[in-house]
Write a protein that binds this DNA or RNA. Sequence first.
DNA 1: GCGACCGGGGTCTGCCATCCCC
DNA 2: GGGGATGGCAGACCCCGGTCGC
Length: 389
Amino acid sequence: MAAVAGVRALLGFHRSVTLQRSFGNIPAQLTSTFLLRGLCSATTKSNEPKPPPVATENESLLENLNLMGVDVKMARQRQPGVLRKAFTNEQGLAKFLQGKGASRRVIASIISRYPRAITRSIEHLEQRWDLWRDIFKTDGEIVSILDRSPESFFRSSDNGNLQKNIAFLTSLGLNSKDLNRLLTTAPRTFSNSFELNRQMVEFLEDICAELGGTNPEQFAKYVISRNLYILIRSTKRVKTNIDILRASLKLSDSELLALLQGPGAEIMDLSNEYLKKNFNSLQQRMVSLGCRKADVKKLIISYPMVLYIGTDTLSFKLDCLLTGGITMKQIIEKPKVLDYSTQNITGRLGELQRVGYDFQKNGINILDTSQKRFDAKIERLGASPELNV
DNA sequence: GCGACCGGGGTCTGCCATCCCC
DNA sequence: GGGGATGGCAGACCCCGGTCGC
């Protein structure tokens, strides 16, 4: 047993120092094969080097990962094949990320959640990092995204594709600030194949042209900058949503175009079923409150984000507002009040009730203000109660 | 000074299915 | 057949402040 432990320790040492130092331009597989076979042969008293069994996990790799604080159970669950590989670069990866400012905890978490990260060579990592640094000012920003979404950085081994994506998105007129926001918010966009991103952009341009728009390129750019998740959705999903909106609201081409190149861009990526469910639920509720279908259309066109709110949340918000003395007509005229959290709405209604605020006389705009402005208003109302009635 | 209107910013991954290559 | 690469899906808001007109 002691001998085995010694070999593992030696193997780990070799893996972490000798081997990784030269990982750069040499394919990971070749480098590790040599070392592993050499060690195995030295401990089995056999002249025939034996490769590790194909279907079993690499013991020294498991040991290394455990020492690094990796959740091996999670890694096994996510990508079991990686643990069976004889040739990996976990120490090289760790060293690389440490050099970029990642903590031990972050590195372990990254590998636990996306084990394939340890199959990337140093050369690949350096290239990819440099490409990301074209968009971010500091290494720290990239580390925080890796911590959040390791898959976005490590899933693709094609740096050329990443380069193409950056060039393509830049060619759309997206500036460095837009790219920064895009990569921060929806990093998966940059791991998409260039072709997939191009298809979505072309799809958006086609939609604009079909609806009679005069500037498809501008339209696509607008939609992307307004909805940063659009490029990680399928064209099928977006198309279905557009069809749902058109049919449900009975929109003309120009009305639909205006909606999509306005606030409607933000709901184009919702799941199709969710969008339908929320629309039906909203319509049902509004009709039951005596609204006409035209009112539903008016509300959605002026505030499409109402379809983003889950049915239960929306129902609760409406209940709060209605029982607080606000009418449905007021909500339709001023739907942005639904933008605020239920907690915020209930809190403000309570405050306003306390000072005797009259919504019929003063309207409901007070609910759509920043907390600072709201507090200042409450203070004034408290000092001069006659203003409320 | 105040209210109304409006735009913008933060946040948003982990998993499964499929295809393809070795 | 195994594993890598990639496509696609579900999940489901909140808040702030600039500007302008009165």
